[in-house]
Design a protein around this nucleic acid. Sequence first.
RNA 1: GGAGAGGUGGCCGAGCUGGUCGAAGGCAGCCGCCUGCUAAGCGGUUGUGGGGGUAAAACUUCACCCAGGGUUCGAAUCCCUGCCUCUCCGCCA
Length: 429
Amino acid sequence: MLDIKFVRENTDKVKVIDAIKKRGVDASILDELLRIESERRTLLGVVESLRQRRNELSEEIGRLRRIGENNPTLLENAKTVSDEITQKEQHLRELESKAIQELLFMPNIPHKSVPLGKDDTGNLEIRRWREIPQFSFVPKNHWEIGESLGILDFERAGKIAGARFVLYKGPGAKLERALVNFMLDLHTNEFGYTEVFPPIIVNKEAMTGTGQLPKFEDDLFKISNDERDFFLIPTAEVPVTNIHRDEILNEEDLPIYYTAYTPCFRREAGSYGKDTKGLIRQHQFNKVELVKFVKPEDSYNELESLTTNAEEVLKRLELPYRVVALCTGDLGFSSAKTYDIEVWFSAQGKYREVSSCSNFEDFQSRRADIRFKRKGQKGTEFVHTLNGSGLAIGRTFAAILENFQQENGSVIIPEVLQPYMGINKITKK
RNA sequence: GGAGAGGUGGCCGAGCUGGUCGAAGGCAGCCGCCUGCUAAGCGGUUGUGGGGGUAAAACUUCACCCAGGGUUCGAAUCCCUGCCUCUCCGCCA
């Protein structure tokens, strides 16, 4: 969420309008907000002076009452003022909630270093690591490899749950688990992240805090039993960022680094026909997530190191990848800047996203009310939040199958995973 | 699922027969004084958010005693709803 004061004060200077346009969003959403906001502020002034008047009258009534006197006229006046307040407050509440509603639908402002562009064709490649592997045969898709090795079963998963689900079996299940453990170990042992395991069902407030709600409800699995709405998390970003919702942290607590393994659930509404086969786009998938809470002045350095931490996973797994800076038109709703890390898929012959590392600046912390206090200074500031996948397990699994496949259909296990697997190769039985 | 108790400032804890309560008292913190140093002691001070105001302050005003409604001229205090915590019983991985 943007700061209403910031929006108000920067509209004329075109900054906000400009930012919205760069994202390809219609800037007219601002007009309505500003109209409501100016009405709100005018009314607020009126209500506050009425309240002041009421307080004065009430105080006088109380004072008289204590010395045993009554003043019917005073009481009459107070009642009139009070009625007027009640009426105006009603209207004020409506304006407030409208203003917030509008604000909740406004995207974050891209950082000045974000490249301009309409869509993903405008993204900027930052760096590549490692040559893409060459094969003396035609490399197979990961789902073909997985099915023929008997470690992936899409058909039976369909029977159990439906399309876009998968059943991992034997060494496949173990490889999935090995990846989770390897990544968590790396981030906790070498990069200073604290491991957490959060609830994977969350409430509406948590989803609003990180920006999934209200705008993206269609992407979520919703659970509504009684009065309450719950949601399955689409990413650990949601529960982990919300750990500190409504808190005021101390300066010396920062930065805070968390890593979490969780399953993730996505409706994938609107992606019919896209990646219908394989592990790329599932309704349920595993992911290890990295989340940071930092001081504003550090957040862009922290984004670089977070991205580097995620990249290290691929380096150790010996998987070729590239890092891409998302352009303004491809940037996520809540993000001010995002690097995607894309791993090489041999059969598809292209790089595909395994991690998305973002700096949200104070967009999420403002929604979730996560602040900190500087030593010796009064008042509070919003922290900056960041997160990135470190990494998506299913897609990493798929990349391993495609890049380490052998002509005879077996798959070599990357060396760092071998201790976790107890084997160095998955072969057909 | 059934029965009860409760949610107050950074923490502990009064207030809860409605008015002088942003809220006693204690602790912690900060600033002075005192002291050979430390401790103790003494005095003062310390919340958050919004509006107005200022170059910035000062200043001023409104709101906030779990959350949201209500009663009332006036609510931390009374009523309703929700959420959360604790105790007991039942059930359960």
